[in-house]
Amino acid sequence: MDYVKPTQLIEDVANAGAYKSTLKIRDILIKGILSGAFLGFATTLAFTATIETNLSIVGALVFPVGFVLILLLGLELVTGNFAMLPLARIRGLTANKNVVYNFFWAFLGNLIGSLLYGFLFYIVATKLGHVTQGAMIDKIIAVAEGKTIAYKSIGGDGLIVAFTKAILCNWMVTLGAFMAFISSSTIGKIAAMWLPVFLFFAHGFEHAVVNMFVIPTAILMGADITLGDWWIWNQIPVTIGNFIGGFIFTALALHVVNKKTATQTKNVFVTYPPALKGKEMN
């Protein structure tokens, strides 16, 4: 049986979070850049599927491919880390400063990767600015304006909506990150993590890293969105909401119901993935 019981799963995730808090800045940045780009690939794939089938549910079904690549390669996605590292901290496996350290560099890496893919995709989709209309261009602009201008139009209520959608989003995203540990087989990991990520994308919730690609790319394509609109009406409240959703509803909740098996040794870093035991972590 390759099924990992929840109690063991939580211990494994905590150990993984502890390991992530020890990574070098260079490694976090490179892994973060790749993660941001891979989610950009997944987003444009989902948009392509939606456009060609006229069914948004089909786009949601294919989107998790990017998330799967990130988890199987052990990369750094700040939204997933919003649950994994706090869990390690709760269990005494790392320190607060190490959690913040990882969050900062992973966020920056994700942003750079998202912007990089966005610029490259802009070149392809617009033929370096020579094409200003098309199904994909219109889709990206419409989605981005719905994530910024639509919230701005209703003021403070818009911020509450964006914030709430971000909480719901990362509740599922972090659950997906945890589910990658529920099986020892590759197929089992893929199937398990696919489900909650599909749920978040199908509902149209707000994911900070996806938005790092969609909104600036839409701005390049001519959307009526300013940098202030991007950060004030989406990126900042969504990032905060993603953290709360991942920390409270995944890390804290699953820690509490499995706390009897919490690792008792303080400040001990366990290698991740398990295959690295006995080897250097960095």
Rank of each mutant, 00 (worst) to 15 (best):
F103H: 08
M136K: 07
F200H: 08
G278K: 02
R89V: 12
I112F: 04
N170T: 10
V4R: 11
T164C: 12
A218M: 03
L93C: 05
G66C: 07
F121V: 08
A177L: 01
G32C: 04
P64N: 09
Q133P: 03
A202E: 12
V4P: 12
F63I: 11
A251C: 08
H207Y: 04
P216A: 10
W194P: 05
I70Q: 01
R26N: 14
V99W: 06
G109Q: 09
G32R: 00
K20H: 03
F201Y: 13
V124Y: 13
I10N: 02
A223P: 09
K152T: 11
N282H: 10
F213W: 03
I112E: 05
N242A: 05
K5H: 12
G158L: 01
P273Y: 12
W233K: 09
E145D: 14
G17A: 05
H130Q: 15
M136D: 13
N267C: 03
L168G: 15
F47R: 02
D27N: 11
E76C: 11
G113A: 06
N110E: 13
F38H: 01
A142K: 11
N15P: 00
T239P: 05
A218H: 01
L168F: 14
D224W: 11
V256A: 14
L77M: 02
Y272N: 13
A177M: 01
I240N: 01
G134I: 04
A262P: 04
L75F: 15
N15V: 00
K24V: 01
F38W: 03
L85Q: 13
V173R: 07
A275M: 08
S114Y: 09
E52V: 10
L116V: 14
N98F: 08
V173H: 11
I70A: 02
L115S: 01
T50F: 03
F213Q: 04
A251K: 05
V197W: 05
L159S: 08
N54F: 00
N15D: 10
Y101G: 07
I90P: 05
I25L: 05
L227T: 11
A192C: 01
G245C: 05
D229Q: 08
A18T: 02
T53W: 00
T226R: 02
F198M: 15
Y19Q: 10
P237R: 00
M84K: 11
W194V: 06
E145K: 10
I182W: 08
I244C: 11
A150M: 10
I232P: 02
E76W: 04
T186G: 04
I28Q: 01
Y122N: 12
I149H: 09
E280V: 04
F205R: 04
T174C: 15
E145P: 13
L108D: 03
V99H: 06
G155Y: 02
S56Q: 14
F38K: 00
T44P: 00
V78F: 06
T53E: 02
W105Y: 15
G204T: 08
G176I: 07
T50H: 02
E145S: 15
T265C: 00
G40D: 07
T48I: 06
N96G: 12
F249N: 07
I187V: 14
I236W: 00
S185I: 01
Q8T: 15
M193F: 10
F178G: 08
I167M: 08
F82E: 06
F163T: 03
W171H: 14
W194I: 10
I90Q: 12
V58L: 11
A223L: 07
E280S: 05
A275V: 12
K5D: 15
L116K: 01
G59S: 04
I137Q: 08
V270K: 11
T174S: 09
T132C: 03
V210A: 15
